[in-house]
Design a protein around this nucleic acid. Structure first.
Lengths: 186, 186
DNA sequence: ACATCGGGAGAACGATCGTTCTCCCGACCG
DNA sequence: CGGTCGGGAGAACGATCGTTCTCCCGATGT
C-alpha cells in the first residue's frame, strides 16, 4: 500500500519539522496529527508510541544526513583533503536554511539524553559516524586519527554556534581552521 | 533573612542539578521541592513560575561560569597565549566531573530555545561571552578576530562531543588544535 | 443489496504538571 | 495567655498530553 507509506512519510516529515522548530516535548501528538493530516488512529498504528516516533524520526534523519554528506563529498570534491573540507561547505548550506535551529541530535540529546537511553544512543552513533567520515579522509591522507576528532569538534562546534546565534558564518570559520589543521598535520 | 537566602540557594542548586541530569521539562516543581526540602509555597514566592526559575538557574550559572573561567585563567596562566589554552584545561576538569552531561546552555537552547525567547537570549549571551573571552586573548596577541571565533568553535564542539560520548578526551584534542591555530596565526 | 471492515473525526480517559488553596502548627507580641 | 501571622505539608484544581474508545461513513465483496 503506497497509502500507508505516504502517510508514514507525512508523519515523519511533519514530526521532524515540528520537533526541529519547538523541541520534542513541546510538540503534542495532536499537533502532529493536525499538521500532517494523518488521523490519530493511523498515527498510532504506524508508531505505537511517541517515544518510538521520536526514535524513528532521529533514525531516519541519521540515514539522511549520512547519505547527504557522502553524496556531497563525492559530488563536489576529489580526494580526501578536499572531501574533509567539503564537509564545511555542506554545513554552510545547511546553516543557511531559514528554519535551521541547530543539530537535531545535539538538541535531542540535550532534551532527552538524560531520560531516554535510546535517544542518547542514536545521538552517540550519529556523532560517531561523522567522526568516522572524517577518519576515512584523514586515514587516506596518512594523518593521525586525532585529526579526525579535531575536525569533528570543529564541525560540531559550528553546528552549535550557528544554531544559537542564527548565523551561518561558523561554517566558513570552521573550514578555515580545518584547513590549517589539515595543512599542519601533513 | 539568611533563611530566605539559603532557601533560594538550595532551590537554585537543586534545580540546576536536576535540570542538568534530566533536562528541564522532565523535572517537575514537585521534584525540586522534595529534593531541596523547600516547600512549594516558599518556592513560588521565591520564583513565581517555573519559567522564571529556569531563567534564574541559567543566569546564575552564566555568572558562575564566567568568573570560574576568568579565575582559572588568572590562576594558572600567564599571558594571553597561555590563557587561551588554559580554557581547554578548564574544560577538561569540567568534563571529568561524573555528572557531566554537556553544557547547560547548549542543552537548554536545544530544549527550550524554540519556545522561550528568554532562554534563547541567555544562551546566546553566554556563548558570546565565551567568544569575548577568547577575543581578549587573541586581541592581546595581535591576532585576527576570527581566531577567537575558531577557538570558540573548538570549545563548544568539545562540550558537545564530551557530553554525548561521555569522554573527557575532547578537551585535550581541542587544546592541541587550538595550539596549532594559535601558532599558525602568529 | 447487504454485511463487513478499515479508517476518519474527535470525545474520553488517566496521568502528570504547574499553580493555588486549605488546614494546621509554632512563634512572636500585646 | 490569647490572638495573629508566616510558613510547612500536601490536597485540590485546571490544563495539557499521551493514548484509547466510540461512533459513523464509505468502500468492497458476494
Amino acid at each position: 500500500m503506497s497509502d500507508a507509506e505516504t502517510a508514514e512519510l507525512k508523519v515523519l516529515d511533519t514530526a521532524q519539522r515540528l520537533f526541529d522548530a519547538r523541541g520534542v516535548q513541546a510538540v503534542g501528538m495532536d499537533a502532529i496529527r493536525s499538521a500532517s493530516g494523518v488521523s490519530l488512529k493511523r498515527l498510532y498504528q504506524l508508531f505505537p508510541s511517541k517515544d518510538l516516533l521520536v526514535e524513528a524520526v532521529l533514525r531516519r534523519r541519521d540515514e539522511a544526513v549520512r547519505s547527504s554528506l557522502a553524496a556531497h563529498g563525492e559530488r563536489t570534491a576529489d580526494g580526501p583533503y578536499e572531501r574533509a573540507l567539503a564537509v564545511f561547505d555542506w554545513l554552510a548550506a545547511w546553516f543557511a536554511e531559514p528554519e535551521f535551529r541547530g543539530c537535531a541530535f545535539i538538541n535531542g540529546f540535550g532534551e532527552l539524553g538524560g531520560v531516554s537511553p535510546a535517544v542518547a544512543a542514536i545521538s552517540r552513533d550519529h556523532k560517531e559516524a561523522l567522526r568516522a567520515y572524517f577518519a576515512e579522509q584523514t586515514d587516506a591522507l596518512g594523518a593521525p586519527l586525532v585529526l579526525a576528532d579535531q575536525l569533528s569538534l570543529l564541525a560540531n562546534g559550528a553546528m552549535v554556534v550557528a544554531g544559537i546565534t542564527g548565523s551561518a558564518e561558523p561554517a566558513a570559520q570552521a573550514k578555515a581552521a580545518a584547513r590549517v589543521l589539515l595543512d599542519t598535520t601533513r
